[in-house]
């Protein structure tokens, strides 16, 4: 049996670095962020709600489901008491990224005329197998690697090339999480030249 964890909808911890980076991005006019690309693509696509964008909505919604679960998983990790600084800070930062991905995906789905999935009340995380910091890191690395593969599987099936580019931008972020988590585990951070 897997213990079911109730994930509370409390406000999540943030660290200062995140805010600093945000205000930096806010001032930058050169950077066309993944966010901008998503929203642009959304505006363009609103005019033609067709089969293609309905299909894109399904792809984005399954990505959103996975992002929301990642947010909840990092919450479990952060509250487990098993993570020591500076690893705890990593978890909080990465959770913040997943929240940003989820917010953006949800907004884009709405722009495309779809209905974003919401976070589940309960996730069946196998918490009884998480006993040490390394267990939690390994669990997070598994999710991040899976997320990279999921976006890799989303890029070629997204009808909008702008959305595909935005998905690739998220993929890059999650690949970095994976490498950093592996590094924290003392594993080779980047074990191969290709992701699959």
């Amino acid at each position: 049996m897997h213990t079911r964890i109730q994930v509370r909808n409390t406000s999540l911890p943030t660290i200062q670095g995140v805010e600093t980076r945000r205000s930096f991005l806010g001032k930058s006019t050169l950077l066309l962020s993944g966010a901008a690309i998503f929203l642009l693509a959304g505006r363009e696509a609103r005019a033609k709600v067709n089969d293609a964008s309905a299909s894109d909505v399904r792809v984005l919604n399954s990505a959103l489901g996975a992002e929301l679960e990642a947010v909840a998983a990092y919450q479990v990790g952060a509250e487990s008491g098993l993570l020591q600084k500076p690893v705890l800070n990593l978890a909080v930062t990465f959770q913040g990224h997943h929240k940003e991905h989820a917010d953006l995906l949800a907004k884009t789905i709405v722009k495309l005329g779809g209905k974003p999935v919401s976070a589940k009340e309960k996730y069946g995380f196998p918490v009884e197998t998480l006993k040490t910091q390394a267990d939690v890191l390994r669990f997070a690395a598994m999710l991040e690697k899976g997320a990279v593969s999921a976006y890799l599987g989303a890029v070629p099936v997204l009808d909008s090339r702008d959305l595909a580019q935005a998905a690739a931008s998220i993929l890059g972020d999650e690949a970095m999480h994976w490498a950093v988590l592996r590094n924290a585990l003392g594993e080779e951070p980047v074990p191969s030249a290709f992701m699959s």
Partner: peptide, 12 residues
Amino acid sequence: RCLACHALAYNR
């Protein structure tokens, strides 16, 4: 590759 969305023993 499936582990962002699936597990063997529980629905995700």
